[in-house]
């Protein structure tokens, strides 16, 4: 469906280009959920945005690599083709439902705009479609809702509206960047359930960007763990939770507070994530890793092949 091939991205820091994503590859398949998980600054959002060629006017440069949509390079698309792709085939849902909607227009005018941007519909037909979409995302009284402004809706309702808008032209690929992070816990779970049911009923390829292993456990079929610009481990979700192979994955999963007994010290990862531009020459995690030796620091480590991939010279047992 959508193939990311060895993509590397740089961002501008104080006038200089600094690599922030290195050699990332994955495939999104219809009906499957891939979670891209990592901590802030690991490059997961930049990678996600590259799937829609967002960011290229905001100081993000593609160094090499490609994104193929049904075999076609999206970087070869002209403006019109790109416009049709965004929202038409590949759609995105963002973290902050507050800022993604325009506060001075009604839900109706924003939804109708988006729908007519992609589909050859009259105003009335577009409105009917908007109603149908709002019902699909399980919002009550869609008729009244259309006349309201974003500020009159709760965070959860706004996120539902945005999901409805993302799906308004029947996109086949949905990229959701931390879609529930800004929401209350009880709302989070409902939005995740909605995303999952839509993903199934519409057979969507879903890329879910998150920092939260709880969200991964709820949603993913496959997981790619990113650290300092690279995918360090990629596996089917059960395999990853049962047998994390990369020391970083294991450490990150172990330091979640609900894993430890109350009051007991949580396992920690010493030090800090190296920022783009100061990545070590060898394994990016080596300076924080208890298993690291000279070989890890000597040269870049490749991602292994197969079902369960890991970028590590000394992976953990059982993988």
């Amino acid at each position: 469906m959508l193939k990311v091939q060895n993509i590397s991205l740089s961002v501008q820091v104080d006038g200089a280009w600094v690599q922030a994503v290195r050699d990332v590859s994955f495939t999104l398949q219809q009906g499957r959920v891939l979670a891209l998980v990592g901590e802030s600054g690991c490059g997961k959002s930049l990678t996600a945005q590259a799937l829609l060629r967002l960011g290229e006017h905001q100081g993000v440069r593609r160094d090499h690599g490609d994104v193929l949509l049904r075999g076609e390079s999206i970087f070869a698309f002209d403006r019109e083709r790109l416009r049709r792709m965004r929202g038409g085939q590949v759609a995105m849902v963002f973290q902050e439902p507050m800022t993604a909607l325009n506060p001075v227009f009604t839900i109706e005018s924003q939804m109708v705009d988006v729908i007519r941007n992609h589909l050859p519909l009259g105003k009335r037909e577009a409105r009917a479609r908007a109603l149908k979409l709002l019902a699909d995302v399980e919002l009550d009284e869609p008729e009244q809702l259309l006349g309201r402004y974003p500020g009159e809706l709760s965070g959860g309702m706004r996120q539902r509206v945005l999901i409805a808008m993302a799906l308004s032209a029947d996109a086949e690929v949905l990229v959701a960047d931390e879609p529930t992070t800004a929401l209350d816990v009880s709302v989070q779970k409902k939005i995740l359930a909605l995303l999952r049911s839509l993903q199934r009923s519409r057979n969507l390829a879903l890329l879910l960007v998150t920092h939260d292993f709880g969200v991964v456990a709820e949603m993913a079929d496959e997981v790619a763990v990113m650290y300092a610009g690279e995918i360090v481990e990629q596996a089917e979700v059960h395999a990853l939770f049962d047998h994390p192979a990369h020391p970083y994955t294991q450490a990150l999963m172990a330091c979640r507070p609900d894993r430890a007994a109350r009051g007991e010290a949580l396992p920690m990862i010493g030090g800090q994530v190296p920022s783009p531009g100061s990545w070590p020459k060898g394994c990016h995690f080596a300076d924080r890793c208890p298993r690291a030796d000279a070989a890890c620091r000597a040269q870049a480590v490749a991602l292994s092949e197969g079902e369960h991939r890991v970028r590590c010279i000394h992976p953990l047992e059982g993988s």
Binding site: V185, K189, G214, A217, F241
Partner: peptide
């Protein structure tokens, strides 16, 4: 704390606890 987590009495507390994300994909 242990009591509330093991035996929540109020409906709202139950809703809140049920909303906690699962720890493992098997618990979906």
């Amino acid at each position: 704390t242990a009591e509330i987590f093991a035996d929540p009495r109020h409906d709202y507390t139950r809703t809140l606890l049920a909303a906690k994300p699962v720890l493992h994909p098997d618990d979906r």
